[in-house]
Amino acid sequence: MMLHLPQAKQQYSEMENKMKTTASKHREIRYFGYPIDPSLYQQVIDTITAINLGGDTRKLCEQAAETLIAITDAGFDAYYERPAQLANISSTLKRATDAGIHAVQKGIHLVIRKLIKNRSIKDLERLANNFSYLVCVDDTDASKAYACFQLEESLYQRVVANMRRVHEDPNIESYRRDVIVSVEDLIGAGIDVFYTKPVSEADIGRITRKAADIGISTVQKGSNAVVHRLFKDMDYATLLPMAEYFETLLHSEVQTYKRRFMKAGA
């Protein structure tokens, strides 16, 4: 249901006060991430456990790749499908953006499979450790899990400031570009965590690294193109619920699986 501007401002003010209270009490680390269902959460934990137990590295590579692909696909639902629904875009534009995003998605799958194929057990253990930081659980309800990545405070504050502008100013043209840049930067931060960092840490050959770098660059360009297509003509009535949705992806009251359930030295 669409909120009127005064209602939206009041709701946002309450949310902002809650975030300030939480930050002052706990000084929580800032995260950006989407909820994952129990089956995917269990898949991630099973993969971490299997890698740490060791065994056939070929099978472990396949399991790790499929898990990372599943996390990524859930991200496409959260970061594209849901916003596209909220945007209520025309069928013609939806087909065009679908084609672009699906090409990006297939590109990511190829990069992941190429990157993780024939990894050493040392690389897999490093990936399992990354998984343990990637999955977060709610502070008060461990059944609520998210695929999260840590945000730098400056980016977090910039996103919050832009969301505040959406709530307070219906003149979207005065800050449309800032919103687009914020979304692009969130995508870039996610790509750094999910792909750039694992590539930089992996013991891979020059040719494989170059192919992965090209794939990652293509993914980011494709994602940004879709963002521009979605946001460039979006009116205020559509942007407001979009902003409210993205606010639900900002988290402070969560802990990583590593911190919550694994020993620091594990």
Rank of each mutant, 00 (worst) to 15 (best):
A50Y: 07
G107V: 09
R58L: 15
Y41M: 02
Y31D: 03
P6H: 06
L5C: 09
Q7N: 07
L93G: 07
A70V: 04
Y41H: 10
Y31T: 01
N17L: 14
C61L: 10
T72L: 07
N52A: 10
I89G: 01
K18M: 09
A78L: 03
H26W: 14
Q63L: 13
R58H: 15
D98Q: 10
K9N: 05
E16W: 06
R27N: 15
V104E: 04
Y79N: 00
A70Q: 05
A70C: 06
A99P: 02
E16D: 09
R82N: 00
Y79K: 00
A74S: 10
P6A: 09
S91L: 11
P83K: 01
I45R: 12
Q63F: 04
T72C: 06
L86T: 07
G55S: 08
A78Y: 00
P6K: 07
I29L: 08
N17M: 09
Y80R: 02
Y79V: 01
N88H: 02
E81G: 06
P6D: 07
K106P: 01
D37S: 00
L40K: 02
P35F: 06
A8N: 10
N17A: 15
M19W: 13
A64K: 05
L53F: 14
Y79G: 00
L68N: 11
Y12W: 15
N52I: 04
Q42D: 00
D46N: 13
R30Y: 14
I51E: 13
T47V: 09
R82C: 01
